[in-house]
Design a protein around this nucleic acid. Structure first.
Lengths: 221, 221
DNA sequence: CTTGTGTTCAAACGTTCGTTTGAATCTAGA
DNA sequence: TCTAGATTCAAACGAACGTTTGAACACAAG
């Protein structure tokens, strides 16, 4: 089998590149990560990325899609299940938020690679690169739509427009919370080095987000 | 005076560079903005940045400090005033949040340059660059400390550790809200092109943040 | 063994980056 | 008016970037 060959199989080379790229992207960002850093970390030749993926942009896309597609599939499924369990009644806001996070948590809990991707996801939202934005827009659009509708049913007093705004704020708090651990440390002096930092953060984040979602509307004047 | 000279005065050249850099940094990010873009936009020679500032990193710092120092001074002053007005009593959480935003709003309201800087600020938090992080840490540390203490007095039921977490989430929602207009558009299909988008967003953001700040704590098990 | 296809490799490509240089130019003070 | 210092300018520097090239290599099929 593959183990006998001293040359790596095709799929193995691709995976090594994807893994190295994901790790470096999460640590340094997309632009700041060079092809040479990626190929050196992956222990493959410099030309391998262009041979297997065509360009750096395509590699970025494939790294994002590899993590994002199963994650968003989990999020859709979780909401489907919750709505089925509720019968015809609207799903409670707290449950909806939990649905959104359960996928991330599962992914982050099961492997260091999962945690790495979550850190990477935090970066993507503020990334100026056009290819990243386009990728996110395509992948997130249906999920956002689904959750917007569910939240709109759960919080009938909140106009859809405000639901969208609050979803936007939620994404901000979320991506920042995931990607900005070191910023938090440096700004506050708090140390968050424990490996279970994510698990300790998520319930706090969920309380915060739920509080924001259910906040009274600003007086419209 | 200066108007008679066909050569720019020293301070004018510096200001032209700072303005052009701020505008381009806000639009494309720090790394993606080249010296040639800056000097072309400012209509000065390529070598001018290195002559007047020493390096691109120093220019980045000076752009940040020029906007951040007066902004944070306003924030400190606003909280001082609120505490003085409250006598010995703790300032209400809603007022504290308003203090934090009043400075940003004043800056954003009075000039396009102010709005530009707010957009730039949104980028900074997720910027991987070491020089940016260091600059933010130094400038924000005392402000964060002050607001943390004030919030801790306003919300005695919330442990200081959770106050810090929620401040962190606040920063995320805030920076994302300011910098991620186009992301919001692209993800939701909502159009936010009006010039008063900032003014329409802030009350919504404040409601959201206050709701998050005052949310019930997660059940500690 | 030979052939053909897919993969790896070292080397170089052209471009752009931030920075430096040394001469030209302007300004202020003696 | 002349000179010393500050500023601008065109040009080039070395380094790093993403990408391309063509030969070398591995391996399965005939």
């Amino acid at each position: 089998m593959d183990a006998r060959r001293n040359r790596l199989s095709v799929t193995e080379t691709r995976i090594r590149i994807l893994d190295a790229a994901q790790s470096l992207f999460a640590a340094h960002g997309f632009e700041a990560t060079s092809m040479r850093m990626i190929t050196t970390t992956a222990s493959v030749n410099l030309a391998a990325v262009n041979y297997h993926f065509g360009s750096k942009d395509v590699l970025v896309q494939e790294v994002l899609l590899r993590g994002l597609r199963p994650l968003n599939a989990l999020r859709m499924q979780a909401l489907d299940d919750a709505e089925a369990a509720a019968g015809g009644a609207p799903v409670k806001a707290r449950v909806i938020v939990e649905c959104f996070f359960s996928g991330s948590l599962a992914l982050a809990a099961q492997s260091e690679q999962g945690r790495e991707f979550m850190r990477l996801l935090g970066r993507t939202f503020t990334e100026p690169s056009a290819v990243v934005r386009e990728c996110l827009a395509t992948e997130y659009a249906p999920v956002i739509g689904r959750y917007r509708d569910a939240l709109s049913r759960a919080l009938p007093a909140v106009p859809v427009e405000d639901i969208v705004w609050r979803l936007h704020f939620m994404f901000g708090a979320m991506s920042y919370a995931v990607s900005g651990f070191d910023t938090l440390q440096v700004m506050t002096g708090v140390q968050i080095d424990e490996p279970d930092a994510m698990a300790r953060m998520v319930p706090r984040l969920m309380s915060f987000l739920l509080g924001g979602l259910r906040a009274p509307l600003p007086e419209s004047n």
